[in-house]
């Protein structure tokens, strides 16, 4: 049985790690490399860095920030999301010391390039991000570029089950940043065949346990709440009651 994961997530805005509230309001936490370094020490199963500035149209990956992060000698797998538009950028990021990348808008703007990226870095290293909103009994897809919402039924997402990528990151756009506000109906309603990672307003062990019991959920991405206390990853892991899970790990300071 596959072991499920807790992914420590860091949201970046204007080169600062921030607490994000629905990607609308932000509070600064500190330097990205230091926040990531903590997650590494606390034994996160993976670390996801989402650069919100780089998701804007025509932006590029934040190489300077990635360089500062990887300079911390991380021994935890790193995932980067933000501004990746082509194969060369993806290869450069992997070469810098990132294990996986997360794509979103490229999927709709240039599907052929997603194929090229997957060919170059392997589909195991590609995650697709899908921001969703549950509203009036419907699942809506939120497009960050034009800020519009689309009914998931009308939005052609059949290619999300393609073999070009390994997992789908579902973001509860509406509840992101909230205290345990993740809307369970989102993961119930979407029927992707791929394994999914869920993110957005997930903080307490009760909800994490409920989510991890679902077969198709492979990982939980947790953001803001990890910054409220020391060794927060270990504290969350201690409360996880499923068997196929790596127990808390306490790193030694060298």
């Amino acid at each position: 049985m596959e072991n499920k994961r807790i992914i420590g997530t860091v949201i970046i805005k204007e080169n600062w790690a921030v607490q994000s509230f629905g990607y609308k309001n932000y509070l600064p936490i500190g330097k990205p490399e230091l926040v990531v370094e903590n997650l590494n020490w606390w034994g996160a199963d993976e670390i996801l860095v989402i650069d919100t500035d780089s998701t804007k149209e025509n932006s590029k990956p934040n190489y300077g920030m990635i360089e500062k992060i990887v300079s911390k000698n991380l021994s935890t797998p790193l995932i980067y999301s933000g501004g990746i538009h082509d194969k060369d950028q993806a290869k450069k990021i992997i070469g810098m010391g990132v294990e996986r990348i997360c794509l979103e808008s490229l999927l709709y703007s240039n599907y052929l390039e997603v194929e090229n990226i997957s060919e170059a870095i392997g589909s195991q290293a590609v995650i697709i991000s899908v921001p969703l909103i549950y509203e009036n009994g419907k699942i809506l897809y939120f497009n960050y570029i034009n800020k519009k919402k689309y009914d998931l039924k009308d939005h052609n997402l059949h290619f999300l089950d393609s073999n070009l990528f390994s997992e789908i990151l579902i973001i509860d756009k509406k509840n992101e940043g909230g205290n345990n506000t993740f809307d369970m109906r989102i993961q119930e309603k979407v029927l992707f065949k791929k394994k999914i990672i869920v993110f957005g307003g997930i903080s307490r062990a009760d909800k994490i346990n409920r989510l991890l019991k679902k077969n198709r959920i492979s990982a939980i991405a947790i953001g803001n709440s990890l910054n409220y206390s020391e060794i927060s990853i270990q504290n969350i892991k201690k409360k996880i009651k499923i068997n196929n899970f790596r127990k808390p790990f306490f790193n030694e300071y060298e």
Partner: peptide, 15 residues
């Protein structure tokens, strides 16, 4: 050879 997280490996081995 143009594939891989070369930097991750280099930094861990140096450490």
């Amino acid at each position: 050879y143009g594939c891989g997280n070369v930097n991750s490996l280099k930094s861990i081995l140096s450490s």
